[in-house]
C-alpha cells in the first residue's frame, strides 16, 4: 500500500509551469527523500500534499484521501514539520505540550519531554526566545509525541548545526524502525539524506526521477581524469554532469567505464589518468542536477 500517491499532477505559479504530469508514489514503510535544487517546487509539493495549495490538475492521495480534502482523522496520522520549524512562539515549552496534548488522542508526553529536556531548558522557557536549533527540537518533540503513521518533513535541516541535524537523524531512524511508519523528507543537506532514505525522488524542471538509494548509487558513476586543455562539455545522453577544478575533471554518468571512454574519444577528448571515483550522494546530486 502507498502512503502517498501523486497522479498527473500539474501546477502553475504566476503563469510558470512548476509541474506537468508528475507521477510518483511513496510506499508505506519507506523513507523517501525529495531532492531538488532551490526553486524546483519541493515546498510547493509538500504544500499540495498537505492541502495548503490546490493543484491546477491531477490528484494527490495521502493515506488514501485526497490531499486537498484530508479528514481530521487522517491529519491526526500525519506529523508535519513545516519549513523553518514553525512553532507557536508565544507559548512556553509546557504550554506547547498542553496545547498539542489536547489535539492528538495518541499523544505521548514522555516522548515530547524526553526530546525537549535534552536541551536542559526550564519548561517555562518561551519558544520565541529559543535558537533555531532549540525550536527545531520542540517541533520534533511535537510531531514525535503525536505517534503519526506518516512524517512529512519540509527541509528539516534548515538552520541546524551538525549536532541538531544528527539528533534529528537519530530520532528519525528510531521512528522508521517501527513497523509501517513512513517518512517523506526534503532537505538541502543531501549528505544527511544519504544516511536516512531508502528511496529518492529527484525533482528537476518539473520532471522526476524516482529510484532506490542503493540502486541509484550502484548505477550512477563518477569518473575522474586529468586534462591540460580547457574544454567545455555539455550534458548529453551519456554525460549527465561535468565539473572541472583546475586540471581535474569529474564526469557523472549512468554509463560504464568503457562506454564513457569511447564517448570522450568521440568528442575528441583524450583523458589522462581516467578512473572511476568514490562518490557521495551530494556528488551524485550535483552530477545529476547540476549546480545552478
Amino acid at each position: 500500500m502507498n502512503a502517498i500517491e501523486v497522479h498527473n499532477l500539474c501546477h502553475r505559479y504566476n503563469g510558470r509551469t512548476i509541474y506537468q504530469d508528475l507521477n510518483f508514489s511513496v510506499r508505506q514503510g519507506s523513507i523517501c527523500g525529495l531532492l531538488g535544487k532551490n526553486g524546483q517546487g519541493k515546498t510547493t509539493l509538500v504544500n499540495i500534499l498537505m492541502g495548503f495549495l490546490g493543484p491546477a490538475d491531477g490528484r494527490c492521495l495521502v493515506l488514501g484521501e485526497n490531499s486537498h480534502d484530508l479528514s481530521p482523522a487522517v491529519r491526526s496520522r500525519i506529523g508535519l514539520l513545516h519549513e523553518g520549524h514553525l512553532a507557536y512562539e508565544f507559548m512556553t515549552i509546557a504550554q506547547t505540550e498542553q496545547f498539542f496534548s489536547g489535539c492528538y488522542p495518541d499523544w505521548n508526553a514522555d516522548i515530547f519531554y524526553g526530546l525537549v529536556e535534552k536541551m536542559k531548558l526550564p519548561r517555562s522557557h518561551k519558544v520565541g526566545n529559543m535558537s533555531c536549533g532549540q525550536r527545531s527540537q520542540v517541533v520534533l518533540g511535537v510531531i514525535m509525541a503525536q505517534n503519526p503513521d506518516l512524517l512529512i518533513l519540509d527541509d528539516y535541516s534548515m538552520g541546524l548545526d551538525a549536532g541538531y541535524r544528527r539528533l534529528f537523524l537519530d530520532v528519525l531512524h528510531e521512528f522508521a524502525s517501527q513497523d509501517g511508519k513512513t517518512i517523506f523528507v526534503t532537505s538541502h543537506i543531501v549528505q544527511d539524506l544519504e544516511q536516512l532514505v531508502d528511496t529518492m525522488i529527484f525533482l528537476d524542471k518539473g520532471e522526476i526521477l524516482q529510484t532506490g538509494l542503493e540502486e541509484f548509487m550502484g548505477s550512477f558513476h563518477k569518473y575522474v581524469f586529468h586534462d591540460d586543455n580547457r574544454f567545455s562539455l555539455e550534458p548529453d545522453e551519456v554525460i549527465k554532469g561535468f565539473e572541472q577544478r583546475g586540471r581535474q575533471v569529474a564526469l557523472y554518468s549512468f554509463a560504464g567505464e568503457e562506454q564513457i571512454q569511447g564517448h570522450l574519444a568521440a568528442l575528441g577528448i583524450r583523458p589522462h589518468n581516467f578512473h572511476p571515483a568514490a562518490m557521495t550522494l551530494e556528488d551524485a546530486f550535483i552530477g545529476l542536477m547540476g549546480k545552478y
Binding site: I78, G84, A87, C103, Y104
Partner: peptide
Amino acid sequence: MPEILGRRMRIALHLPTG
C-alpha cells in the same frame, strides 16, 4: 497577526479538526 506572520496558521490548519 501571530498566525499570519511566518504563515503559522498552517500549524492550526493541520490540526485534526475541521
